[in-house]
Design a protein around this nucleic acid. Sequence first.
DNA 1: ATAAACCCTTAAGTAGGCTCTAGGGTCAAG
DNA 2: CTTGACCCTAGAGCCTACTTAAGGGTTTAT
Lengths: 146, 146
Amino acid sequence: MNDKLYQIGQLAKMAGTNVDTLRYYETAGLVNATRRSASGYRLYSEQDAQRLYFLLHAKKVGFSLKEIKQLLGLRLHKDEHTCEEVKHYTGAKISEIEAKIADLEKIKQALESLHMACCGGGESAENCSILSTLEDPDTFKHTSDK
Amino acid sequence: MNDKLYQIGQLAKMAGTNVDTLRYYETAGLVNATRRSASGYRLYSEQDAQRLYFLLHAKKVGFSLKEIKQLLGLRLHKDEHTCEEVKHYTGAKISEIEAKIADLEKIKQALESLHMACCGGGESAENCSILSTLEDPDTFKHTSDK
DNA sequence: ATAAACCCTTAAGTAGGCTCTAGGGTCAAG
DNA sequence: CTTGACCCTAGAGCCTACTTAAGGGTTTAT
Ligand SMILES: [Zn+2]
Ligand SMILES: [Zn+2]
Ligand SMILES: [Zn+2]
Ligand SMILES: [Zn+2]
């Protein structure tokens, strides 16, 4: 069940990207089409699509294609790595993600105080109460990085 | 109070980046040094540093320098925009950030189930219970984008 | 007063991630 | 059986965000 296949143009539209990018991802070894039609058209399965969605979401939040390739590849070449390595890698990535979330929460808070302070009216923002938030050095204090 | 100034090298080290990048950010209009020494050395204030930290954190979570420039610029050229515009922009960015956080939470969950399922031992990961999670199309289902 | 460790500028080069061009097949509709 | 909307490949080109190079001042320490 669910053996529906998509042509490259359909998948591109579904995913909000374009065909060139999909072909590029193929050459980069990121998302391959399950098979080709008799005439050589790429045919993507639902799984291929899921893989692409994962990629696009991960990209959106700042992972490089190289990192994404590793993430997507966790289930592959299982025989080439020990469980210890796998566990170490996933643990590190999880911390990384937690740090990213924390960063986003802070940026969000800064924007929210701007957003709420602003009256939203049609007048010039010259006297807008926005001023203080981003100007305040404490708005986004540096705690610890890396 | 707190009128400490940093040379470019110090700031670069503090921020975990390097001097070339800081000079680049200057040419890109992102982070300027408050002033120059008699001999032309850039001298960064604590506020300049905060601005840089904001930039670096925002970059880490996938914002482009162009977007970051806008974020950092919200408090500038206040006279050129209406409160309405400001409010609209911040509102849109906040939604964007919420979507990013949601994406990260999903990726995190997927990695966490991998992480917990794996025994972490020294044997080959060939029979590792990792298999199912990333292979399952539902792991990162496409809901709605853009 | 000479080294070591900083700093400056301008300009060219690089890596990652697409995006476009050229030249050509494929397929459904009318 | 042609037109329009797809698809293919190979390769060049482009944008972003740095990074390196070349040539040269400045500071601090011994
Ligand atoms: Zn306002
Ligand atoms: Zn207002
Ligand atoms: Zn395992
Ligand atoms: Zn194991």
